[in-house]
Amino acid sequence: MKALAAAAVAFALLIALALLAPQWLVFMAMLALAKGVVVLGLVVLMRTGLVSFGQGLYFGIGAYAAALLSHQWHIADAAVMLLAAAAAGGLLAALLGLLLARYRDIFFAMLSLALSMILYGLLVKSAALGSTDGFNLHARTFFGIAFASGMERRVFLIAGSACAVVAALMVHRLLDGHWGRLASAVRDNELRVSYLGASPYRVVYFNYLIAGTLAGLGGALAALAVGHVDPETTYWTTSGEFVFIAILGGTQSIMAPFVAAAIFETLRTIASQYAPNVWQMSLGLAMLAIIMFQPAGLWSLAERWRRSA
């Protein structure tokens, strides 16, 4: 109930933002939301004790799936794009997960990174997809309803908010019950999980599937916001950003990925305005500070503040 109320409030605020805020802020919120959805998936995976350094793979697949619909098949419906992107991410994760779910720790992290770099290599090489330049996409309708020009991003933000809120609620339901405990159990002791009669492989596999699906969805949201896709979406620095945001927010709460993504985008916007050359360095310093002083993420600050209030 509490989660439902929080979701409703967040959704209302996002709609207000979409309708009233200046374009640049709508754009920024859209990007933060896109990344928040990806990180939400990463947090699900992290419950099993695994970190993927290759979520850019699914982010890129989602972005390109949406863009290809518009570019190759002239389908310009944002809702179709979002669904197709999530499906594409999920399908690919269902396939690659068969392999990845066997690996743990650094092997899992590195293998996921390697797979994302393979896609990057393929995209850079493929002239039909614009190589390093990528290509543009256009969405003109949402569930078949056309919207006035200039309103696109505002509509996308509302659509994206709806997706994010639904995804967050579903993840919350999932992690709050048996599945969430089972994921923690796999993180703590796979031997015991097997000797209780459950399959650690299956738990990892499904959580990887969820993470891939959400990253695909996030990729399409980002592509809609930017109106353009390029191989950078699958590059390892993009994947690193997701891990960064996950650590920044912590894995305690379903809200944390979104709050952390918003902070991240704000910082980046400010930095690129006033100090474009030290952005990477400030990122590094921020990470250092988090790991040293707030290893459970910024969300734990909010928790503490709430408890003392």
């Binding site: 048996h178 405990r181 923690s184 159990a185 993180r187 703590d188 002791n189 031997l191 015991r192 209780l196």
Partner: peptide
């Protein structure tokens, strides 16, 4: 062989659920 970071109740709850 326990789930070290979880409490006793959750350890048993996981076992009973499985």
């Amino acid at each position: 062989q326990l789930f070290q970071t979880l409490n006793v109740r959750d350890n048993l709850l996981i076992a009973e659920s499985i």
